[in-house]
């Protein structure tokens, strides 16, 4: 058995500490140790984007990130976006715009979209396509997802005047 190492993170605003296997990916640690199964493992090799999370404000592939390298980091996942029972504008836009079908790529898509809107609240269609280009969806054909991100941006109170 691999050595266990302590990892302390702020996960979706909550202080958390767990022992994880040395060498474990953040994806496996989040899912197996921290109990957050919203990031999905579609390829475990950094090509599908289903495991995308935001670490210290930056979009990262959790399947290519070592859990122990995240000690002290602030991590946001799709499971942490809703406040109380109210969905985040992106979640609402995805739901209303039929931007999710099987749902497996959805948490990663929403993270990629959030990382974009955090940096650029008023993106162009090209900005959205570029931001989602690391995330593979096999059901929707992408267009409803692009439209949902643009709709969420348009509905945002932070939108530039």
């Amino acid at each position: 058995m691999a050595k266990k190492v302590p990892v302390q993170v702020t996960l979706n605003g909550e202080e958390r500490a767990e022992f994880v296997e040395s060498g474990a990916t953040l994806l496996n640690a989040l899912r197996g140790r921290f109990g957050d199964t919203s990031p999905k493992g579609g390829c475990h090799q950094g090509t599908c984007g289903a495991c995308s999370v935001i670490i210290d404000g930056e979009l990262k592939l959790s399947c290519l990130t070592l859990a122990e390298a995240c000690d002290g980091a602030e991590i946001v996942t799709t499971a942490g976006l809703a406040t109380n029972s109210a969905m985040h504008p992106l979640q609402r836009a995805f739901a209303e715009g039929f931007a999710a079908q099987c749902g497996f790529c959805t948490p990663g898509m929403i993270m990629a979209a959030k990382a974009l809107l955090d940096q650029k609240p008023d993106p162009t269609r090209e900005d959205v396509i570029e931001a989602l280009s690391g995330n593979i969806c096999r059901c929707t054909g992408y267009e409803p997802i692009i439209q949902a991100v643009l709709a969420a941006a348009a509905a945002s109170p932070h939108k530039a005047a």
Binding site: D36, T37, S38, T78, F94, G103, F104, T106
Partner: peptide, 21 residues
């Protein structure tokens, strides 16, 4: 009409088989 499973999908609460250990 909204899909009945879509709130779970967009909030990350939908359970897939591998979300168990």
């Amino acid at each position: 009409f909204h899909r009945s499973d879509v709130p779970g999908h967009v909030t990350g609460k939908t359970n897939y088989f591998a979300d168990r250990s």
